[in-house]
Amino acid sequence: MPRLVTVRVNRPDRRPVRVWVPVLPVVLVLFPVVVLVVLAAIVACVVFRIGVVRALGASWRVISALPGARFDIEQGRTAVLVAIR
């Protein structure tokens, strides 16, 4: 599971913004929202006749596989970096 998400934004004529987001504390704070999202996903699976367990398992695999992903985009003096650890 991801532990830390780093976001860095460089814009011309502005100070660079660098944000470190610790995933676990954020998930704990947003736990009620996470529960609602999971419930909505379960309802969607039932409506579209998708195996709930398979869908939740596949989603968990995607989330677990996120660490190591890195997206670095630069255009001129503007740059955005998202790194998941």
Binding site: I50, G51, R54, A55, A58, S59, R61, V62, S64, A65, L66, P67, G68, A69, R70, F71, D72, I73, E74, Q75, G76
Partner: peptide, 22 residues
């Protein structure tokens, strides 16, 4: 100049394939 540098874990691609199968 513009530059894109993306690093995606292969495990994420495999997980995505399983999700897409649904």
């Amino acid at each position: 100049p513009s530059r894109v540098n993306v690093r995606v874990p292969l495990q994420l691609l495999r997980a995505g394939v399983r999700l897409a199968a649904l």
